[in-house]
Amino acid sequence: MTESIVNINVEDMKRVELVRVSGRIDSSNAAQFDNVLKEVAGRKHNVVLEMSGVDYISSAGLRAMIALLRECKKHKGDVRLANPSERVVEVLALAGLDSLFEVHDTEASAVGSF
């Protein structure tokens, strides 16, 4: 059986946690994505999600992103997106959530914005 694969790599950038995500995020692995983001939010409250390699995301993935944003904002931090894929941008817009995240064209720009 084909499984949904999401690859998540976390890098500590001193003031920012950089999370590179790629692959497919649906209900079968959103809990894995959510768990990583919870760990990240437990360390720092400024987070960059690099999502250029995300080729599929459902509302389950969005919920994990919103939970991270809520936690970071609670501690006066923020979550910014670096180079989100067309699918990520489309699904965020469809959910009416595109205005919640500051979007940067590059990873360096997003990290440097904090």
Binding site: L62, R63, I66, V91, L94
Partner: peptide
Amino acid sequence: ELTDQLRIGGLGLHF
């Protein structure tokens, strides 16, 4: 307010 209220579902049906 938006992030607080989004804990509930409904997004899937909206899509």
